[in-house]
């Protein structure tokens, strides 16, 4: 795929954020799309956003569950960028109308105390770099019509990132066994998902190590103070205007995301 097509795809995706009209799957429009093309399309959008004043505040890892990987026919995760305008506060309404087809996922967010520079980052190093963990709700969204995504589409579309709501009680990693920590996702009073931290690549720490080493190959470091969303503990759940979700994690407390009523 040539640079002109990459720029064209990046522009189409960026435009979809504004128009809220999703585009057709990229692999339909560009049959010769590769993994490298997709990450380049993602980066072109991020550079544009940063040039316009946005700040990168962290990363998210996606496709971390065996179910999602099987669905996409892949055996590895992907990643996207978290920009400053994607962070929302607990209990203040998330603007539902800003999204095209939002879904929600409970996650254990890592906050770094010092940078992680891959490749070659070990589990030991990654644990030492984590300042604390927070319960989190990630809003995922797709700028591709009807979530008809393959791995190449979602990577180009910033790993289907939408936003994040962080809980406010920090817990040190040493105080919790993330692998066996249970999580229950409620919508209103209904249980809509349950899972354990180990659903994320066996442990969310594995996801952090994978991210550090994968972005490291591109010369990018995970920075101190950055937030890393390592992947969902349950299957994602669709969001409707007015919904309120609470994710409760054993040992970490809970986080709530409330969505505004308006649809346009």
């Amino acid at each position: 795929m040539d640079a002109v097509s990459q720029a064209e795809a990046a522009a189409a995706l960026l435009e979809a954020y504004t128009t809220r009209v999703p585009i057709e799957p990229l692999r339909d429009t560009y049959p010769d799309l590769t993994l490298a093309d997709s990450y380049e399309i993602q980066l072109l959008q991020m550079r544009r956003r940063v040039a316009d004043g946005a700040r990168v505040l962290g990363h998210k890892v996606g496709l971390t569950s065996p179910v999602m990987q099987k669905q996409m026919g892949v055996d590895q995760p992907d990643y996207g960028h978290l920009l400053d305008d994607m962070f929302f506060l607990e209990h203040l309404p998330v603007p539902t109308a800003a999204y095209l087809q939002p879904r929600i996922e409970p996650e254990v967010a890592f906050v770094l105390r010092r940078p992680l520079r891959g490749p070659g980052v070990t589990v030991a190093e990654a644990i030492a770099a984590v300042d604390f963990v927070l319960p989190a709700l990630e809003i995922i969204d797709s700028r591709i019509r009807d979530w008809k995504i393959g791995i190449l589409d979602t990577i180009a579309d910033n790993a289907s990132s939408g936003g994040v709501v962080l809980g406010s009680r920090p817990t040190p990693l040493s105080a919790v066994d993330l692998r066996l920590a249970g999580c229950v996702l409620h919508r209103g009073g209904d249980v809509v998902g349950t899972g354990a931290g180990g659903a994320v690549l066996g442990s969310p720490i594995t996801s952090l190590v994978w991210l550090a080493n994968t972005v490291g190959e591109r010369g990018v470091a995970l920075e101190a103070g950055h937030v890393v969303l390592p992947g969902s503990v349950t299957a994602s759940v669709p969001v409707a205007p007015g919904d309120a979700f609470t994710a409760t994690f054993a040992g970490l407390g809970s986080v709530t995301a409330r969505f505004s009523e308006e649809t346009s």
């Binding site: 066996l180 999580c183 229950v184 899972g195 931290g197 659903a199 054993a250």
Partner: peptide, 26 residues
């Protein structure tokens, strides 16, 4: 806390599923 008591299901060494007690009638 049985609502948050979690289980990881492993088949042949690979994690295939997880849930908590809340999946059982709440």
């Amino acid at each position: 806390d049985l609502a948050l008591e979690a289980v990881l299901v492993e088949v042949g060494g690979a994690i295939v599923d997880s849930a908590t007690g809340a999946a059982v009638q709440g």
